[in-house]
Amino acid sequence: MDVQVWISYALTLFILSFLYKDNPLYKLAEHLFVGISAGYYIALAYQETIRPNLWEAVVTDGHYWRIGAFLLSILMFTRYAPKVAWLSRWPLAFVVGMYAGINVIAFGSGDLIIQLQSTMLDFLHGGMGAISNLLLIVGLASSLLYFYFSREHTGALGVVSRIGVWFLMVSFGASFGYTVMSRISLAIGRTRDLMLHPLVTAALIVAVTVGLFVWSRRGGGADQEIT
């Protein structure tokens, strides 16, 4: 059997052991994860971004103007030298300006206008559809009024903003439900992987349990409050 299966399963169980309490096995897996992730993404950035877009573009294709982009990116590191730290604002200004330009137009045309247009609905005709449309309009208006802070939320404004809070709560509830579904899906995916080699999983569960038991008996985690 592949050693990688043992390593992968052991690390999964080490991470899950946090549910018992914070412990050295969890810490080991956590530190490994942080270190490997950093290394992986650095390697990925070089292989997928720097090599094709800078190295090969300059050396192979002769796009020498990209050296300018490289020099601009080097200026980012001047933040570590206080005397010339101001130079790091140039590449930042470039990035911020470019993305702001793209996103303002994209948000305006893709989100704001079409979504506003989609709230201009007929709520007088169409049976159940009309009720749905009415709910949408009331929900939108009352939620927006909840975020109107230039007047105290009393009287009619208070009532409407209170209705807005109810709509917002329903929205948060839906988001929470979807988030739970997402996290459970991840747990199912990992559990299914662990079930591919049940003997390995069983052996590692026993080993982790024994390890945690010994660690706990020796006073490990005694300062942690579990409720």
Binding site: I114, Q115, S118, L121, S175, Y178, T179, S182
Partner: peptide
């Protein structure tokens, strides 16, 4: 992913 679902539903419901 399910987490993003509620954010994207308005794009499906848009007219």
């Amino acid at each position: 992913t399910a987490v993003s679902g509620p954010d994207y539903v308005p794009y499906y419901k848009a007219v």
